[in-house]
Structure formats: structure tokens, C-alpha cells
């Protein structure tokens, strides 16, 4: 365990705070994009200000309905989805969703930007960054890894050069910290993360969902209307952990680690792999209070492992080599 040498006795312990690209989070728990809407579904259930932040639904230039249904299929210890970036479009996010969010959330939110072309990523990033609601946004998370849309989405996240192009282009239109959300459906995620860092990204988030499918044996047809979908949930946790570990070795920028986190124990493990903050995705869909419970469990789980300051364990598993 890496113990802090300069414990500030004025700060209450255990200290769950982390710094993500210059913004201090009360704790590292960030519900992941696509699993938390624009926040207020959950704000009806609990005070979402207990969270570190959250990443709102992937937002595109125009409104999108997404793919045909069925777009949900269960999997062992997880779920496949092929929603396909349903969202009201950036104009409505600025005019409706962010004002509504301001009534229930007083922390910086992570704005997830999706697109089908570099121009679209740039335009959505620019509009969010320049809007009268920009103060509500802490970070721009550029999703170059959606597996459920065709012609765009994941194709930018599976090629290091294309990923770098998206980073360079969006970098020019925002002064917000730029976090790039990476796809696990690649052979070398560390190489892509490095290309994003070199192109000017302030952080990376990973992993998006793993491509998979299910078949209805009664009809011999794929369950998802889109044939394939993205797998998330506890099933992907070891894969996500391995990728965060590899990316931590390759880059210096902070990592938002996600993929199958359902407990505070998982948060500790993901941070030891190298994550500065963690995304909680599918857990929110099975347990409406999952993210709140993880936040509440953190102090006792920290005590269990003798952790006084959560920030001290970031990448701890790398120091033993």
C-alpha cells in the first residue's frame, strides 16, 4: 500500500476525494453515460449530489431515436444493449435537460459527446462549451466507442490515427478538460490511449461495452433487432480492469475506469489498477440505488483495507513490480 507521507490532520478521514483533471470530486463515483439519463430519473429516488459527478446520456448534434427494439438482452452476469444513442440532440440538452438538471444537481457534470463525423464531435463539443449552460459542465467526455451505431461511433475509437484526429479537432473548440471514452473492441487499447494523450486529451475513460449477441433459440433469430449489442455488467469487470491496468502503464493522464463495477470493493480494485475515478454503468439498471450505495460503502471498505486517502491507491498495483 502506498501511504501518504503528509497527512493533513485538518481533513476528515477517511478521505474519499480525488482530483480529476483539476476538478476535485468528493468521491470517485461517476455513474456512466447511458445508464443515468440526464440525472433526474435518479434524482426522484435520492439526492444525486452524493455522487462524485455523473456522465450524461451520449449527446449528438440532431435528436436520435436509436435502434429498433428489442434493444435489451440479458447475459450471464450482465446485459447487452443496442439502444444506439437515443438522445434529444444538443440544442434540447442545452435548452431543457441542463436547466432541469440544475434544479437537482449542483456539481459539475460530465458531458458525453457522441457523433458520426469529426465535424459532429466538434460542433457538439463547441455548442456545449460555449452555451449559457457551460458552467454546469465540468468535463467533455468524447465517446469514440459506441458499438451500436453504424458509420461513426466506434470506428473512431478502433484506429489510433482517427482517435487522435477527433482529439485534435475537439481540443480546439473547448477549454474544458477533454476525456476520451475508449472502446475495448481493439487489439491495443494502450496504443490508442497514448495516441489520445499525444493529441492533447486530458484524460481517458474506459471501457465502453464489449460487442456481443444472443440468439432466441425458439426462433433461431438474434434477440436484438440490431443483431449485436454491447455487453456490460459484472461479466466484463476483469476485462475492464486489465485494460485500465495496461492503459495506466502507457499514459500519464488520468483514467476514468469503468466496466462491471457494482460494489465499493470493485471501486478499490479499479483504482488500484490505475483509475483516478470510476464509472458505474449497468449496476444502476439492476439496482436503482447502486451508485448511492457504493458511495456510502466506500469509507467502511477503505477502513477494511487500511486506506485513509483514496487518492493514494491510484495505480497502487503497479508499484510492486
Amino acid at each position: 500500500m502506498v501511504a501518504s507521507k503528509n497527512i493533513d490532520v485538518n481533513k476528515r478521514l477517511p478521505d474519499t476525494r480525488v482530483d480529476l483533471c483539476g476538478i476535485t470530486l468528493d468521491n470517485p463515483v461517476i455513474p456512466a453515460s447511458g445508464c443515468f439519463g440526464y440525472g433526474y430519473e435518479f434524482a426522484e429516488l435520492y439526492d444525486i449530489n452524493c455522487l462524485g459527478s455523473f456522465s450524461f446520456k451520449g449527446t449528438t448534434l440532431e435528436p436520435r431515436f436509436g435502434n429498433k427494439t428489442p434493444r435489451i438482452a440479458e447475459a450471464p452476469a450482465g446485459v447487452l444493449n443496442s439502444v444506439g444513442l437515443q438522445n434529444p440532440g444538443v440544442s434540447k440538452v442545452i435548452s431543457h435537460e441542463l436547466p432541469r438538471l440544475a434544479e437537482v444537481f449542483n456539481k459539475p457534470v460530465m458531458a458525453n459527446v457522441s457523433g458520426f463525423s469529426i465535424e459532429e464531435y466538434v460542433e457538439v463539443t463547441r455548442r456545449l462549451s460555449e452555451s449559457e449552460r457551460a458552467d454546469q459542465i465540468g468535463w467533455i467526455e468524447v465517446n469514440i466507442s459506441c458499438p451500436n451505431v453504424h458509420g461513426g461511433g466506434m470506428s473512431f475509437g478502433t484506429d489510433a490515427d482517427m482517435a487522435a484526429e477527433v482529439v485534435e479537432a475537439t481540443r480546439k473548440v473547448t477549454s474544458k478538460p477533454l476525456i476520451i471514452k475508449l472502446s475495448p473492441n481493439v487489439t491495443d487499447i494502450a496504443g490508442i490511449a497514448k495516441a489520445c494523450e499525444d493529441a492533447g486529451a486530458d484524460g481517458v475513460s474506459l471501457i465502453n461495452t464489449l460487442m456481443g449477441m444472443r440468439i432466441d433459440k425458439k426462433t433461431a433469430m438474434p434477440i436484438l433487432a440490431n443483431t449485436t449489442g454491447g455487453l456490460s455488467g459484472p461479466a466484463v469487470f476483469p476485462v475492464a480492469l486489465r485494460m485500465v491496468y495496461q492503459v495506466y502503464e502507457a499514459v500519464k493522464i488520468p483514467i476514468v475506469g469503468m466496466g462491471g463495477i457494482t460494489t465499493a470493493e470493485d471501486v478499490i480494485e479499479m483504482m488500484m489498477a490505475g483509475a483516478t475515478a470510476v464509472g458505474v454503468g449497468a449496476a444502476n439498471l439492476a439496482e436503482p440505488y447502486a451508485s448511492k450505495q457504493i458511495v456510502e460503502e466506500l469509507p467502511s471498505v477503505m477502513a477494511k483495507y487500511g486506506i485513509e486517502r483514496l487518492a493514494d491507491i491510484i495505480g497502487a498495483s503497479h508499484s510492486h513490480k
Binding site: 435518479f42 446485459v79 444493449n81 439502444v83 437515443q86 439492476a286
Partner: peptide, 17 residues
């Protein structure tokens, strides 16, 4: 009836036009 993810409006898995 539709295949649902969460059942409480968060995942957009069951939307219809």
C-alpha cells in the same frame, strides 16, 4: 410488452416512437 433493461426509465432500452 417490451424487453426492458431497468424498468424505471433510465436505460432507454424499451422506447417506442
Amino acid at each position: 410488452e417490451e424487453r426492458m433493461g431497468c424498468g424505471y426509465g433510465a436505460c432507454m432500452g424499451c422506447s417506442v416512437l
